[in-house]
Amino acid sequence: MTRYRVSHETRYHYEGEVALGYNRAVLRPRTTTGQRVLAHDLRIDPTPAFRNEHLDLFGNTVTVFSVETPHRTLVVHAVSEVDVRPEDAQLDLAGLARWEDAVTAARQLGDVGRAFSLDSPLVGTDEAFAAYAAPSFPAGRPLYDAVADLTRRIFEDFTYLPGSTTLSTPPLEVLHSRTGVCQDFAHVEIACLRSLGLAARYTSGYLETSPPVAAPRLVGADASHAWCSVLLPDRTWIDLDPTNGLIEPVTHVTVGWGRDYADVAPLSGVIFAAGVASELVVSVDVQQVDPPGAAVISPGT
């Protein structure tokens, strides 16, 4: 088990005064089979006049708030402490089943789960995605091997290039340009999986960068991250991180999941101002902290 302290701060600087701002935040890590949330605090400055938390359709905690005093800076700072237990989320035999069985399982998902194998607002299926994914999915191949191969290919074929895409760049364009950021690669892989009939969801969260020994840790060197998950025939999910070419990453902290980025955008909103330009600075820091009593746990377990 690893314990992380996550600090995720978003700062908006406005050139002029903003009279009124409404926001939606998805920043509270959720409890999963492999992850336990020990503490979470969401600090907002200026203090919101209204603040309300609810669970969305996918089980994520969503905070809606409004700042109603004139302001030039908005700071939203989420601090969480999370235990990640990869041993609880180990691959079971379902991953060894033929990938076609997972397609059948995807069709049988009722209710909102059905959305994970169909088009969503930001991710449309297309033959181009099916064609790109095809070499990884020969008939009868075990699902685990197929998705590992696809994840590795996206990792190798695509170039990570911040600024090459925006939030509104369609995944199909990313497929052609082969450049983007983590959110784009997650969308591309989701589109590939869904175009084959598999169920895939978008996950937002964080990962820890292992600092070189003795080098000072740089606060803000990390960032909020995104990856995807695929449904196994036994209706459990495994995580795939095409940005890092990882399958079942063990150091990822999950915040929430949905059909695509729009469902779990860390922070979105509407401001009322007379044409005010804004600047956005995000800093994320994910640090390992020693769990209480760590000394008695022998290393290497």
Binding site: Y12, S224, A273, V284
Partner: peptide, 11 residues
């Protein structure tokens, strides 16, 4: 106006 959303992402 829509708040510019999204985060600075680094690989």
């Amino acid at each position: 106006e829509a708040l510019p959303s999204g985060t600075v992402r680094r690989r």
